[in-house]
Nucleic acid binder design. Sequence first.
DNA 1: ATTTGACCTTGACGTTGCGTCAACGTTTGT
DNA 2: ACAAACGTTGACGCAACGTCAAGGTCAAAT
Lengths: 243, 243
Amino acid sequence: MRIGELAALVGVSTRTVRHYHHLGLLPEPERRANGYREYRLRDAVVLARVRRLTELGLSLDEVKDVLADEQGRELREVLAELDADLARQQKAIEARRARLAELLAEAELHPDSAVSPHMAEVLRGLPRGSRFAEFDQELLALVDTAAGPAERARFAEMLRPLAEPEARGRSAEIYARLDEIADAPPDDPRVAALAEELADHLPEELAALMVEQNADAGWMQEMSPAQREVFRLLLSIVRERTC
Amino acid sequence: MRIGELAALVGVSTRTVRHYHHLGLLPEPERRANGYREYRLRDAVVLARVRRLTELGLSLDEVKDVLADEQGRELREVLAELDADLARQQKAIEARRARLAELLAEAELHPDSAVSPHMAEVLRGLPRGSRFAEFDQELLALVDTAAGPAERARFAEMLRPLAEPEARGRSAEIYARLDEIADAPPDDPRVAALAEELADHLPEELAALMVEQNADAGWMQEMSPAQREVFRLLLSIVRERTC
DNA sequence: ATTTGACCTTGACGTTGCGTCAACGTTTGT
DNA sequence: ACAAACGTTGACGCAACGTCAAGGTCAAAT
């Protein structure tokens, strides 16, 4: 047999056969006078065996080990491990399909949204138009995108009170005042007042979460010094309260 | 934010971020005076979104399309396709695990066997020791390895009569006579006799399958001319019978 | 007798999504 | 003052082949 016939017999490409030669998976057969490889039936048997194993998902290196082993020991070992691996993959795919279904359902409703449905609803409830509000929305979108599904729902629930009609007015006012102090020095008297107001306005759970944040985090550099100061004060107020 | 902080925030490596820049998935942010990239919260949002999509299994090119689309149209399209793809993968994995279980069970019983359990049993029943018998075993092993699971079982059943105790004697004798004519010319009288005997000995179903074979196939070159002639005659006998 | 077409040869680059040096500059902490 | 921990670009490595490139070989059709 020449290489093309061997390949067709087993159902692979000639390139694959030569690749296996290169890796030492399949021994190089004798050559004819013209340099062509001349295969025997044995080679086809080995090639088919290699093929079966790779189709099961073994890497070529693993196949090499299994073939070299010549005993069933390693084979069982590798197969068991592979089965465990496939089981993991199954779970992963299932999880992905679940998220996909979630995303698809959401895309039908709100084609332009990049966040989860819960969060999208909350975000629509929050005031807009202020510089700081935009910043806040980015922050919330980020948290929503980065968190796991369970956390996302919980987080959205924590925010919901701020988006309720009776709270929106005050939310908007606070945003406006945060905008106002953008260029103020950090020791402006409005800074401390705002921190107090925020501590009062934010749901407790949310405030508790913020305690873990570091006021020096890089993303906070996008706020002005005075705004950062508001948050520094807010954090200390919350910390005192929870102690 | 500098690149390390952005990466940590979203949960990827800095290399990944730079890779996304390279592919145009994430816009290059402004640089600081020292050449460092300076990221804003927006970038984190985009990066997180890219990340979510890739984790769902989208390729980076697909993610790029989705992001460029800016409308939900393409997103839905890609997601639906992806879901179909994942469904296919699930089925494939399931099939692989089924074959794996098969192989594992078999490996427990006969650690050194490279063929299916049915075929292994049949092969043990067939005579050995003759040159031609070895060739035949290779051929059968190959067919077993290459065929699908259903075909394998059917094929093994077709062979079983030849391995039964009452047929083994005659099988062995035929093998011996095929060995004998190895160096004979194709027009040796024993050739025609052997072809008749084989046509008589082989199960009908098996003979019917052989009709599809081409007597010039490369793997047949491993037989001597006289042996090939036996098969050529055998094929014509079978063809006449089935007409 | 030649030309076409189907095969074969080796060698090398392309694919995907980054990991991992290398070789170097910057900033920060002790 | 020096080390540790950041940042920069550039380039190679990985898995399992696909896909040219640039030929040589062989049988059949012209």
